[in-house]
Nucleic acid binder design. Structure first.
Lengths: 208, 208
DNA sequence: TGTACATCAGTGAACGCGCGTTCACTGATGTAC
DNA sequence: TGTACATCAGTGAACGCGCGTTCACTGATGTAC
């Protein structure tokens, strides 16, 4: 075996998480059975319980992995955008455009947000899962709030605006856009909403 | 028995639906058991199956009831707003303000949107539930699109804007706002987003 | 006005299946000396 | 370099409980004649 590859167990665990994420996004956590996961991954039930001490542990690992992935993705996206334009406003507008394009490029639309999914099944989960979820949303808030502070310092807003609310609007539009996209089966709804937000940001700080 | 009151069976059915809606919004449809519903309503399991031929029927009735209620609510809200101002734009701005206030007045924040809940458990439901869900979102789109056409005829937009996307933004912000509100446990997030949208609409059609 | 029958709104008991979890065990790989 | 032991990544069988659904039955109310 090539020793740069992960060990067998890590690989299996990742496949369990990947399979579970898809299933949870499609039908919810409660309706996702361990039996179905092990069937697609190809191990036995005891194999599952070697990797996760119970189903709740799976829920936690799933959410943590999802949040970490999203964070890395956003970091790299806005870092690349800033490389294309040193100005905080224009760099951000480029980043939003790239975000919209990324959403457009997903073949079947966005597969769904675990934070939103867990939110509508909150009674299934423990306090630390709730805390993890809340932390993730607050991280997005402060990420974009910091950016808007930078922008506002250079471009005083043309209209009165609550920058925390504007920062939250990103999460709100993404989570809401995913839902509306999925329900009407039009994958362009989500990128459209991001572009609409981009126009709003431009009009706030540039006045068109 | 007073004959203006609903018959006994109708009343029980409504209590089942009400109980079920709360439970589904808190933990999802799959994790909501018939046993728990009959326990709170105070009938036996066979009593439940007298009212709904199976659990899928409950899902359908639940969603239909939710959509109908929302429709009546929005109709009456924007009708009242229009009575306060005959202009389509200003009537709409008043309506959005009233909507935001209504959300603020909910003691524990918005309890959740069944459309969003079902969306994240779509594999549990049949084609006609999906159709019902889609229909509901499209109804909101055309409701607000019609309004924006009326407004745009009198107030030509100051910036280029896709009115269908702008109409979808209401659903997107409501569904997204509910999620973010719930996750961070700040009930003002949702009304704030509606007010932010209201500012956007004003700047689009009035230029501040 | 009284009787026969139908419908409404349930009851009570039983069903089989799938679920999450446990327990004793195992064969392959890694590490210490 | 060979052997002893530990850890990793699972297997296989069994468990009890809760779930949705069915079936035969019932007592109260409504309707026809």
């Amino acid at each position: 075996m090539n020793d740069t590859l992960p060990r067998r167990g890590v690989e299996t665990r990742d496949r369990l998480l990947e399979t579970a994420e898809q299933a949870v996004l499609a039908k919810g956590f409660a309706a996702t059975s361990i039996d179905e996961l092990i069937a697609t991954v190809g191990i036995t039930k005891s194999g599952f319980f070697y990797h996760f001490k119970n189903k709740e542990e799976l829920a936690k690992a799933l959410l943590q992995r999802y949040i970490d992935n999203e964070d890395v993705l956003l970091d790299s996206l806005f870092d690349r955008a800033d490389e294309l334009h040193e100005d905080p406003l224009h760099g951000f507008l480029i980043g939003l455009k790239m975000l919209a394009e990324m959403m457009t490029d997903l073949p079947d639309g966005h597969p769904g947000c675990l934070v939103a999914s867990y939110c509508y099944q909150e009674n299934l989960f423990s306090k630390d899962v709730h805390a993890l979820n809340k932390e993730a949303v607050l991280a997005w808030r402060s990420r974009f709030r910091d950016r808007f502070d930078l922008i506002a310092a250079r471009y005083p807003p043309r209209v009165e605006v609550d920058l925390d609310a504007l920062a939250d609007m990103v999460s709100v539009l993404v989570d809401g856009g995913i839902i509306i996209s999925k329900v009407v089966r039009e994958k362009n709804v989500l990128p459209q909403q991001i572009m609409l937000f981009r126009d709003y940001v431009r009009v706030i700080f540039l006045g068109t």
